[in-house]
Simulated assay, not measured.
Amino acid sequence: MPLILISGYPSSGKTQRATQLVSYFSAKIQSSSDPHLSRLTVSHINDQSLAIRRDVYREARTEKEAREAQYSAIKRALGRDTIVVADGLNYIKGFRYQLYCEAKAVKTPSWLSEIMEQAGLMFPEVHIGTPIETCRTINTRLLGDDQQDGGYEQDVFDNLVYRYEEPNGMTRWDSPLFTVPFVDETPPYEAIWEAMIGSEAKAKVVKPNTATVLQPATESDYLYELDKITQEVLSMILVWQKDHPGEGGQVLTIEEGNNVELPATPVSLPQLQRIRRQFISLNRQHKLPKPRIRTSFVEYLIDSLG
């Protein structure tokens, strides 16, 4: 079933919005006479439900452990009769991509209208659009309130804001994207429900994208091909930049139908290698068909450089 990602700055009101959505979905399900909808449940996963403390975000090691706990909990919750609301910072786009892959890999019946299914609008993301200064004020108040879960220490708060990678509705894993302004009393309930379930409660099997299905490693040379093809793409970019100094912002054709629009300033080798390592890490287990490796990597490059 659908995965709904909640994303936003620290102390932006994510849990408040997630709770509103959970209450709305639960009421919608309970009042439905459709047997397919009435059997659904809603799972709300956040730091509080996983007993993750705010101070884990101070150190890279504990933060990584917290993300792994979140990832495992969401993966376990995904299933045929569950709507999962992943309420958290979700500030790293690579992490959001991983969750998108997990949701796509779950072969479950869904109730999407034909239009929604063809558009692939299955996993809504809700971006909490609270201004940074408002978040800072709320966080300061939470720090001094013993009755609340507490805020983030100021240096941790500033660091999380600095590292936040805002969702982009043009990427597959950040769409459909719903931004909820701070001044809005409620999220757009119906629009999110429509994107998630569709207007017709008609059961049909969602066919996972071949690029996101977890497959057994039947080809021994898969990792070799993954490494080789991604390195070839990087080499093409580096050679082009060397041969065209001062010509940033141009479109480089990797192969027919695969174009990369390069930034105005040259992309450094360390930056390209970092993107490549992230892509390989994300697809080491989510095995791509060989013909899809180059195309998927180019798409990932475009999103990362954009």
Rank of each mutant, 00 (worst) to 15 (best):
G169Y: 08
V180H: 08
A195R: 07
P208S: 04
K207W: 01
N168D: 14
T171H: 13
A191H: 15
K228M: 07
E185A: 15
A201I: 01
P176C: 04
T212M: 14
P187F: 04
F182L: 12
P176K: 01
Y164E: 00
T230F: 01
S175N: 14
Q215P: 07
T218G: 11
F178V: 01
N168L: 08
S220E: 08
P181H: 03
Y224K: 12
D184Q: 13
E225M: 03
W193D: 06
W173C: 04
A201L: 07
W193Q: 10
R172S: 09
T179W: 00
E165S: 07
S175K: 13
A201Q: 09
Y189S: 12
I197L: 13
T210I: 13
F178T: 01
K204A: 10
D227P: 10
K202P: 00
E190C: 08
G169L: 03
M170E: 05
E165L: 04
Y224V: 06
T218M: 12
V205L: 11
G198P: 03
V180T: 02
N209A: 08
M196N: 08
P167Q: 01
A201W: 09
I229R: 09
K202F: 07
N209L: 13
W193V: 11
P176E: 06
P188Q: 11
F182G: 01
T218N: 12
P187V: 00
A203D: 12
T218L: 15
E200K: 14
Y164M: 01
R163G: 01
A195D: 03
W193Y: 10
T179A: 03
K202L: 12
E165P: 15
K202D: 07
T171Q: 11
G198W: 00
A191V: 09
Q231N: 15
T218K: 12
G198N: 03
A217G: 09
W193C: 13
K204E: 05
D174T: 02
K228D: 12
T230E: 04
Q231V: 06
P188Y: 13
V213R: 14
R172M: 08
D174C: 11
T230I: 04
F182S: 11
A211P: 01
G198C: 06
Y224T: 10
M196G: 07
M196A: 15
S175L: 04
P187Y: 06
P208N: 05
V206H: 02
Q231I: 01
E185F: 11
M170I: 02
I229K: 05
Y222V: 00
M196W: 02
N209H: 15
E194H: 14
Y224N: 09
P176M: 03
E225V: 00
D174Q: 06
A211H: 05
T218H: 13
